[in-house]
Design a binder for these strands. Structure first.
Length: 105
DNA sequence: TTTATGGCTGTCA
DNA sequence: ATGACAGCCATAA
């Protein structure tokens, strides 16, 4: 792999997101020390090992929505997982960022 | 190696 | 609110 530290930092941040809250890709990227690399965070999620134990569902895009990924079922799964943590959705995939967005330490 | 694509973001029309 | 553009750069072919 190219930079293990990068992924490690990303995972670490995502793992730090409290249940019932969400964070944006850009936010995670910045906290992980990767400003402007939100996309790479998304890639990190995409290539996530199924057994990584990373709560990727707590990461949403800047609009407070679930990003349309390649696997249509994941979108549904993510919403379900978030609802299970107490996050309310306004529409099919929308949620109140102002209320659930994670405030980093 | 080069190219294309992508779970994004912020700005502007 | 929606759509187009331009940066960011790792992964896949």
């Amino acid at each position: 792999m190219k930079s293990p530290d990068t992924y490690d930092a990303i995972y670490s941040v995502v793992l730090s997101i409290p249940a019932g809250t969400v964070a944006t890709y850009g936010q995670v990227a910045r906290i992980a020390g990767l400003p402007g690399r939100a996309r790479q965070v998304g890639y990190a999620m995409r290539t996530l090992p199924a057994d990584s134990g990373v709560p990727w569902h707590r990461v949403v895009n800047a609009a407070g929505r679930i990003s349309p990924r390649r696997d249509p079922d994941g979108e549904w799964l993510q919403r379900k997982l978030l609802e299970a943590e107490g996050v309310e959705f306004s529409g099919y995939d929308r949620l109140s960022l102002g209320r659930y967005q994670w405030e980093e330490e």
